[in-house]
């Protein structure tokens, strides 16, 4: 499974990653920080990582699912 990590220390709770994830993987906690709610739905599209203005979210793509889709990260 793809692993989405959030560096809380750098996150400014802008909500961009949560709002534009195509598969509703992320949710805001009570303080507005993103938390991974539905990890199994993550396709590893990287959009959350690319749109984070604070470099505070990173998607660690699962090697197996990468082979399945046959496409490299970010494509």
């Amino acid at each position: 499974m793809n692993r989405v990590e959030i560096y809380r220390g750098w996150c400014k709770q802008c909500g961009i990653c949560i709002a534009f994830c195509p598969h509703q993987v992320l949710e805001a906690d009570d303080s507005g920080y993103p938390v991974v709610r539905n990890p199994e739905k993550c396709t590893g599209c990287l959009l959350c990582e690319m749109r984070c203005p604070d470099f505070a979210i990173v998607v660690n793509k699962d090697e197996e699912s990468r082979e399945e889709t046959g496409s490299p990260a970010g494509k």
Binding site: R3, E5, Y7, G9, W10, C11, K12, Q13, C14, G15, I16, E49, M50, R51, C52, P53, D54, F55, A56, V58, V59, N60
Partner: peptide, 30 residues
């Protein structure tokens, strides 16, 4: 499992303080 490292981190100046100075949600970081 490989530890996730943000690609951008490789290019950041370690002497600078993060998070950066830009406001929450500002487009400059993107």
């Amino acid at each position: 499992m490989r530890e996730a490292e943000h690609l951008v981190h490789k290019y950041l100046r370690s002497s600078k303080r993060f998070p950066h100075i830009w406001c929450s949600g500002c487009g400059i970081g993107i």
